[in-house]
């Protein structure tokens, strides 16, 4: 294990609640639908996540993965159905504050890299130079701390977005294709960080098109097809033999 991840771990171990995701789990989604202008983009989603492992959401472009993440995180309200985290509605601020999201398109504030982290730490009343430097070191951005965040490359901005999400000290973290624009080394570093963070009890829900990544990281797979869940299967089983034909085709690289 690298120094960076050890530091990340110590930061989280210090936290009084050991397995923090348990305060939000299980996640229960029932008969969830989402339509825009009469068009059903997601329909009849039933999902239950009980363990604080890494859940990967897979599916073709336009299957509704990003929408599902937004619904689970409470950024958009469903047309019908419910999302309950430990029997509490996702709309509750207390629930949402324990969650963080890294978006498909990274967003950074137009200020320095360090100030981007400081902003979130201040928001959570946890401003500290040490914490910030640790987060930046983990993201391999410490030497760019003073640089303007908008001048970072796409992959670097994504790393900053992940560091910023971790700065909120979340119990659940959503990531929408976090490594899509990263080089192999950065991808490996992020995966290692996610695994280490997850071992400390932070639930990770990840959308990815990188099948190898899902294989490496995921404990269970949710496969979305045309706005519905085709299957929700433990990862080993999924990759050995997916149940749904849609997932089999996806894994074989067919439409």
């Amino acid at each position: 294990m690298s120094d960076a991840t050890a530091i990340e771990q110590s930061r989280i171990i210090d936290h009084p609640m050991h397995n923090r995701a348990q305060s939000l789990l299980p996640l229960k989604v029932s008969s969830l639908s989402y339509s825009i202008r009469q068009r059903a983009l997601l329909h009849n989603i039933d999902l239950e996540l009980t363990i604080s492992g890494i859940t990967a959401i897979l599916g073709h472009n336009g299957a509704g993965k990003s929408l599902l993440l937004r619904l689970l995180h409470g950024l958009i309200a469903p047309t019908s159905g419910t999302v309950l985290w430990h029997d509490r509605a996702v709309a509750e601020l207390e629930v949402r504050k324990k969650q963080a999201m890294v978006f498909q398109k990274p967003f950074v504030l137009r200020r320095s890299v360090a100030a981007n982290i400081d902003y979130v730490l201040a928001l959570r009343h946890a401003a500290s130079r040490d914490t910030r430097d640790k987060l930046l070191r983990d993201a391999n951005l410490l030497d760019k701390a003073k640089q303007s965040a908008t001048s970072l490359s796409g992959g670097e901005q994504q790393r900053l977005a992940i560091a910023r999400a971790l700065a909120t000290d979340p119990s659940v973290i959503f990531l929408d294709e976090p490594t899509a624009s990263m080089d192999p080394a950065a991808t490996a570093a992020i995966e290692q960080q996610l695994q280490s963070v997850n071992r400390q009890g932070i639930k990770i829900i990840l959308v990815t098109h990188d099948i190898a990544q899902a294989r490496r990281l995921a404990d269970d797979i949710v496969f979305l097809h045309q706005g519905a869940i085709a299957e929700h299967t433990p990862a080993e089983e999924f990759f050995a033999r997916a149940h749904s034909t849609a997932a089999q085709h996806y894994l074989d690289g067919q439409l």
């Binding site: 950024l75 949402r96 999201m101 967003f107 504030l109 928001l123 909120t168």
Partner: peptide
């Protein structure tokens, strides 16, 4: 339009 969801995700109050 670029940052609305990120701010919402961080639960930032409107005035902030």
């Amino acid at each position: 339009s670029e940052c609305r969801e990120q701010f919402q995700s961080l639960c930032i109050p409107w005035h902030r």
